[in-house]
Amino acid sequence: MDGGRSCEDATLVSVIIPTRDRADMVVRAVASALAQTHAVLEVIVVDDGSTDDTPAALAAIDDPRLRVLRHAPGRGVSAARNRGLATARGEYLALLDSDDEWLPEKTTRQLACMRQRNLAISQTQEVWMRGGRRVNPGKAQGKPDGFFFEQALGRCLVSPSTVMFTREFWEELGGFDESLPACEDYDLWLRTLIRHPVGLLDELLAVRHGGRPDQLSAIYVGQDLFRIRSMAGLLGRSDLTPWHRDCIKKELRRKALCYARGCLKRDKPEEAVRVLAVAEKAAGGKLF
């Protein structure tokens, strides 16, 4: 893969960055996108109703490749990403969370990898930072390459800030599910893996910053509820193979039971019964 190819490559890449009340961080994210060695790109920031200095901070960036869209407050990250992707003009589309950043060669390297392997979607490896210090992800967070639908049911194995995909892929898959306040990426990657492999460029080309209270993983503690909703929705699809359906039912049963036990420990028996009933109905028969 020729890292210098970007100087002659006229392929437009659209970078979508949703944000809300992260003035300093979104400026860092935008700067990392604009500093890519593949310079033919547009950066679309969708501001989900920020009340801090985000609008002013973005307005101070003098680069014609940057577009800022103001969004109705509180509609969430799925709606923000969907709006940005709907207005994007690029042949390739890439996601970047406003608290993360890219290394300069990411776009160049990822474009070359996708062309070489004829991929519709891919991700890269990333450096993990927590509280300003680098941490090593565990084996459970390892990223597979290819078709890994069954593994992806257990946990989200695709990192939004490292993802790039073709316009044709996005038009086929459709948008993020805006009814999910969290785990919207888990849902999209499962829908992806039914039809497409997710390629892995095994290079550290992004930086993931975590450990803050404003992240969705901290705001929504019981995230298995949203994964249960996602799997229940998947079982209504007509294009699942018997293998896909069996995998979903197995994980749906496991997650629903785990969630219900947690409800009982928190003295919420009605919620436990409700979630078990939702899972069983989606499975179309006895699940427990």
Results as ranks from 00 to 15, higher is better:
residue 179 S to W: 10
residue 174 G to K: 08
residue 170 W to H: 14
residue 176 F to K: 00
residue 192 T to R: 01
residue 163 V to P: 01
residue 188 L to R: 08
residue 174 G to W: 08
residue 167 R to P: 06
residue 192 T to E: 01
residue 179 S to G: 14
residue 183 C to H: 02
residue 160 P to E: 10
residue 187 D to Q: 06
residue 174 G to D: 11
residue 190 L to G: 06
residue 184 E to L: 13
residue 186 Y to A: 05
residue 165 F to G: 03
residue 170 W to V: 04
residue 174 G to Q: 07
residue 191 R to A: 13
residue 170 W to P: 03
residue 183 C to A: 12
residue 184 E to C: 13
residue 174 G to C: 10
residue 171 E to V: 04
residue 187 D to N: 11
residue 170 W to N: 11
residue 175 G to A: 03
residue 172 E to W: 14
residue 169 F to A: 07
residue 176 F to R: 00
residue 166 T to L: 12
residue 167 R to V: 10
residue 189 W to G: 00
residue 170 W to A: 11
residue 171 E to H: 09
residue 165 F to D: 02
residue 164 M to F: 12
residue 176 F to G: 00
residue 182 A to I: 13
residue 174 G to R: 08
residue 172 E to H: 15
residue 162 T to I: 10
residue 175 G to L: 03
residue 176 F to E: 00
residue 189 W to Y: 14
residue 167 R to F: 09
residue 170 W to F: 15
residue 178 E to R: 04
residue 162 T to Y: 04
residue 174 G to L: 05
residue 181 P to V: 12
residue 160 P to K: 04
residue 162 T to Q: 05
residue 188 L to F: 15
residue 190 L to S: 06
residue 182 A to M: 13
residue 185 D to I: 12
residue 160 P to Y: 04
residue 189 W to K: 05
residue 193 L to S: 03
residue 178 E to A: 15
residue 180 L to H: 03
residue 193 L to N: 02
residue 162 T to L: 04
residue 164 M to Y: 03
residue 168 E to P: 01
residue 169 F to V: 09
residue 182 A to G: 08
residue 189 W to Q: 09
residue 171 E to M: 07
residue 166 T to M: 14
residue 186 Y to T: 06
residue 188 L to E: 03
